[in-house]
Design a protein around this nucleic acid. Structure first.
Lengths: 227, 227
DNA sequence: CTGTATCCGTGTTGATACTG
DNA sequence: CAGTATCAACACGGATACAG
């Protein structure tokens, strides 16, 4: 039997890489960050992963106490995978990593994102100082997945639920919303990929809450800056 | 020519994993975090890495503008690898990841750490509120590597240099210092693995600045212990 | 001494097909 | 729906040889 390949290093970062450094481990955690999912739901948010790799990663993440599997009550014969408290506390890692990486000179925009990662990106990138006295409930419906965001007292709170009480609701393709929030596009250009119900002024103001940090200089093809 | 395996995902975290998610990439960045190093110095801090993998990672990290290679002036025919500004700004990722992972129920203490990772761990784990009005310069000499830490005005500043002006200096094996700072051992138990020059009272107080956060419960092998 | 290139054994990953 | 089984391709690590 094979000893799992591990850094033999007391550094906590090396241990982190031992447990979440395998391919697909962190994207799986990302998909669970806003609530439990079933095997097939996970595959839907992780295009390219194969069933056997997903199985193996779920076992390893469970062994590391990052997630637990729960069997749903009898009528539904399926299992769900849920992050543990400690697993959920890793969100700060995703936020810091995302904020650093979005400045990458080699990052190409336009690739598709899962509904969960779009919602997490908002929680990561929102500039709380711009919320001001904005007080609103915003709904999102991206295919099967629905989310509810509350802007209140300078905070931005998210949960995974239908927002019947939303002041504005985005319905359609999450990638269209990304193009507006981060790509400088206008809702009007999204045609029918994204529909807005409710307060369109609010939707417009919402789109100004997510400033992108400056890109880091490209040291390969560009000229190095004077340090 | 094969396309490098990449997540086809617009998520910034997925991009981060594309550029620093390969095995050894982050440990290499860690070793460069406190200053440039040569190929052989890197190998010394990364036990287990093979020369060909190190070469390949250095090329990839350079292509991602995370590090640059500089050729030293003629007398020394060698190259050094240095993080770019943006590469250095990833330190917050290491800190957050380390703070999360050191709570892991499966992390086993006692494995060796490189001099750089020990010094970085101090910068990560220090509790600034405990510094108080402590005002001191502390030197470290771990084999070939020397560091200088300044405690002043509640800050903890590090650079890679000999500290001729140190109030206290630690000389010897960095793992012995780890055992004291994080393992609750006493300097006296380190025998000759760690020598302290200068103010031993200061060294004692220094060891109280690095509290460990509570472990996360192990969801696999046991009930969460009520300690 | 400082890297880089090549070969090789092994384990990990990924695609397809298949089973309860 | 929730995974296994099988197999091919690739990445990793070790050794060695080579270049400046």
């Amino acid at each position: 039997m094979s000893q799992k390949r591990a850094y033999q290093d007391g550094c906590a970062v090396a241990h982190a890489l031992d447990i979440v450094g395998d391919r697909w481990a962190m994207p799986i955690m990302r998909e669970l960050m806003l609530g439990p999912k079933r095997f097939t739901d996970l595959r839907a948010g992780l295009p390219g992963i194969s069933a056997n790799v997903l199985t193996q990663r779920l076992e390893e993440l469970e062994a590391s106490s990052i997630l637990i599997r729960r069997r749903l009550p009898p009528p539904a014969a399926s299992q769900i995978y849920a992050l543990t408290d400690w697993g959920r506390e890793s969100e700060i890692v995703f936020q810091v990593l995302g904020r650093w990486a979005c400045r990458s000179p080699t990052m190409q925009p336009g690739k598709p994102m899962s509904p969960v990662s779009v919602v997490l990106s908002m929680r990561t990138m929102i500039d709380r100082s711009r919320i001001g006295d904005l007080n609103a409930v915003i709904g999102f419906r991206f295919g099967e997945e629905a989310f509810r965001a509350t802007l209140k007292d300078g905070n931005f709170l998210i949960d995974r639920s239908e927002a019947a009480d939303a002041d504005a609701t985005f319905i359609g393709d999450q990638n269209a919303l990304v193009a507006v929030l981060y790509g400088g596009a206008r809702y009007a250009d999204m045609a029918d990929a994204l529909r807005i119900e409710g307060d369109r002024m609010l939707a417009g103001r919402f789109a100004t809450l997510f400033p992108l940090p400056p890109k880091a200089p490209d040291m390969v093809s560009g000229q190095p800056s004077v340090s």
